[in-house]
Every structure is written in C-alpha cells, then in structure tokens.
Design a protein around this nucleic acid. Structure first.
Lengths: 242, 242
DNA sequence: GTTCTTTGTGTCGATTTGACACTATAATTT
DNA sequence: AAATTATAGTGTCAAATCGACACAAAGAAC
C-alpha cells in the first residue's frame, strides 16, 4: 500500500529540489582572537543595504558541492586569508526576515586563533579588523544574535576542552592563562585556587623560563603539554574542566 | 573607495539568490519518548531510493516564509500529528553527498515527549512508530549521524535542565526518575546518592501518595514542582545538575 | 637601598562525593 | 497465619574538592 503512495512523494521532492522552494544558504564565521586582556572578533564592513555602515561577520553564500565545513574555510580564506582553521559549527539561523534581499539561511561557525600567528589579508578591501567583543553593540543583519550564540558556545567549550591555549602564545604565564579564562567567561577566579586547579589537571609543561624585563618579580613560563593531555584522555577518571 | 567596490558584490548576491546556487533545505526531527526503561524515537519508512526499506527521521523540505522552528513544528504536525512541541535545534548537516536526489542541507531538531500523552496520526501512512534508540543500527541518509548528535545534545541538556520530567508521568517514583536518567545517559547511579542529590535540589513535590498494587513495598509518588524551580532559578547560587 | 609591582605559595573549615548494608512494607505463597 | 519474595527507603564515614584568605620573594626603577 505505502509503496504506491510513495511515488508522488518522490516526484514532489524532485520538483521542489529544482524550483523556487530552494533557499539561499550562507555561512557566517565568528573568529575569536585574544589580545592583551580583551577578546576580539574579526569584522568587516557590511556592503549591503540597508545595513551599509554597520559591521558584519565574515560570511558569504555557500557554493554547490562544498560541505558546510569546507565552505566556511573557503569563505574565511577568501575574505581574510586565514586557511585551514579548526572550526566549530554553532547552529543555523533561519528567520525568514533576517536578510534584506530575501530568504537566506545562514549557518554559524566559530574559530579561535592567536592574533599574532595569522597575517590577515583584507582581500575584498572591506576594512577587515579585530574588534573587542565587549565593544560591539550593533551588527548588520542578525549578526549580534549569532555572536551571542557563538560566544555562549565558546564559553561552554572553553571550560571543557583545552582550547584556550590556542589564544595564548606558546609560552605563557599562569596569570596570563587565568586572565584569558576570566575574560572569555566574564568571571573572576581566586589566584591560588586557579593555580591549584591547573596543578591538579597537570597538563602544563614547566619550561623553567621566566617572563623577564618587567618591573617586578618575573613569572614562570609554561606551555600546554599536548602529549600528556592526550594520554590522560584515555583514562576515564580524567576530566578537563576549568 | 570601498563604496564602489561594493556594488558588484551586491549584484552578485542578487544573482545568486535567484539562480541555481540556491540549495534545498530540509528539517529532520528526532522525537524522543521514554517508556518502560527504554528511550525511543519516532521513525517512519523512508520512501526514497536508494534508501527504501530503511527507517528515517521525521523530516521534509522547508517552505518559503517559515522560520526553521516553525517549519519543524509544521512538519511534525503533518507527519505525526504532534503539535506545538518544545523543540531544540541541534545543528545543520550539509555534506554534499548526504542526499541521493542532490544537494539538500538539513537542520536537525529534537524534542522530548511523554509517549502516552500524545496520540500519533500517521497521516502519510508511513508506518510511524516508536523504536528503541539502542536497537537502531541503520537509518536512511545520514540520519544515524543526526540521531547520535541529537542524543549527545540531549545527554548534555538533560543533566542541566529539568527536562527529563517531560518523559515521565506527572506522578512518578524516585526509582522511575533514576531509571530515566540512567537510560538516557547510559550510566548507573547509586540509589542513595541519587536520592540525596534530588533531595538537595529540592524541586520535587511529595504527593503523599503511593504507587500501589505491586508485590512489594509501595513507593512514594512525587511530581516536578515547576513553581519552586522557577523561584530557585532567580537565586544565583542555585544550580540544577544531575 | 628604598620603593614599587606582581609572583608564588599553604591552610582551614565547609561542602560534596563515592562507597556501602540493612530494615520496612506490601503482595504472594504455603 | 506464617513464611517468602521483591522493592522502597534510609545514614555514615572517609576522601576529595571548594572557597576564602595574607604574606614573603623577586626584580626593576628610582
């Protein structure tokens, strides 16, 4: 019985896949960087009415035959010069009125990078720049919603996975690490308790070097011990959580 | 300068929004229900080659002018008769080869319902039925991936939000509640420690009733105290976490 | 050598966690 | 009616974790 019912259904799909019921699809990327006690993201000038003059996230239309992940990296390369970033999908945004030119669904991604490690190429000449997350109060389209959703997901993930280290130089002090977590999470930690926790997790490598040249006692430098972390991951008792 | 660069960019968009670079977009819903110690989801027969004979999630194409959330609820109503569910977006799936008829992006949603509270209407005569999550090893398309991502998100959310109660009858025993968490999370809890935790959270209403008629000591019945929970939410010290 | 600034460190009490065993209650069986 | 069976309900202890808290050490600047 159902076999016969199914044929019109397929034809309906084939029709729809070729007609106007298709939808424009874009990707928008929130690229987080960290610098001197502030969390920043990459923004460009929006070139689309009625949002001209506002800033927007790094985004463009998805092409046929590229996966969403591939598309995000292609768009990032095209607009910023950044290549092969480790990206994280956030979610899809699909309000019918979110885009002035018509129905455009967008899929949001975020990534974390060390600002100093990546040269930017403003290939489209759109005033590509780093802006402090806390100084952003308006953005084009629904990009402020996208930013908030991405930042919230980042907050969750940064506490459970050792991704914060991606935002610091390879060698960093414990104060710098604490500052990073405080900035991203918007909370403050007790210095001794923070160090106690990091010491317990035991995935930092003491480099026996100092951050020197400052007018006070020099701080010890550490690096993230990826190897130790990977080994600990196998043990079910191990949990990374800040 | 950039003002002039921008005009071709807009025209490119306008072109693309109307040509073949648009993409088919669908929604797929994972509807979780819980019944007698097993977590189940709603599945229907897949009616599309080459996946005919397999089961699939509840899904269809998104229409113009409906938001993603609205679309999910419209599709659920059309295929299952379920209306106005509280739905949660999971993420978008966009592998170019995920669908046999061509490029179709899908956005996954999940929802939780009490099986007994909702009559199903198999409107498309597609053998709509509840299937035990642990007995599902193949599904059409990439629906197994979607199921796993949805189940993982459910695991996270069920521990942090009081949504598990949606899967139990209004009156339930502590053993039933424990069993629910054990089934969804795939872990087991110590009975006394579990009760101690629920007692500390203090959001259950002791109904002074018993689950009677069984050949052993009867268990006390509780219900979720939504009002107490809402009030506690205001206090920053309160945290729901199983 | 005095001052300034930031680093680095330990303890105590409170809270939370995991592990663990026996009695209470009702239905059923004999 | 007594014994059996099955599940409900309960408390303690030791270990681990958590939050709060203050001062000496190190180097640069003056």
């Amino acid at each position: 019985m159902s076999q016969q019912n199914q044929i019109p259904n397929i034809n309906t799909w084939i029709d729809h896949l070729q007609d106007e019921s298709r939808t424009a699809l874009s990707i928008d990327c929130v690229i987080f960087g960290y610098d001197l006690d502030s969390l920043k993201i990459l923004l460009i000038n929006c070139d689309m009415p009625p949002h001209i003059g506002k800033k927007s996230l790094i985004g463009d239309l998805v092409r046929n035959n590229e996966s969403l992940d591939d598309s995000a990296n292609r768009i990032l390369k095209d607009i910023t010069g950044l290549e092969n970033l480790h990206i994280q999908q956030v979610k899809a945004f699909g309000d019918p009125n979110r885009h002035p030119l018509g129905r455009v669904i967008t899929v949001a991604y975020y990534s974390l990078i060390k600002i100093d490690d990546h040269a930017l190429i403003d290939a489209e000449n759109r005033n590509l720049q780093w802006i402090d997350v806390n100084k952003i109060s308006t953005l084009a389209f629904d990009h402020l919603d996208i930013l908030h959703a991405s930042h919230n997901l980042l907050k969750q993930n940064v506490r459970k996975h050792p991704i914060g280290f991606q935002l610091l130089p390879k060698k960093f002090t414990l104060q710098e690490l604490q500052s990073l977590y405080e900035t991203i999470l918007g909370v403050s930690f007790d210095k001794r308790n923070f160090r106690r926790k990091l010491n317990a997790i035991d995935i930092l490598l003491d480099l026996n070097e100092m951050r020197e040249g400052l007018a006070h006692r020099p701080a010890k430098l550490y690096s993230f011990n990826q190897e130790a972390f990977s080994q600990k991951l196998n043990k079910s008792s191990f949990k990374f959580e800040i």
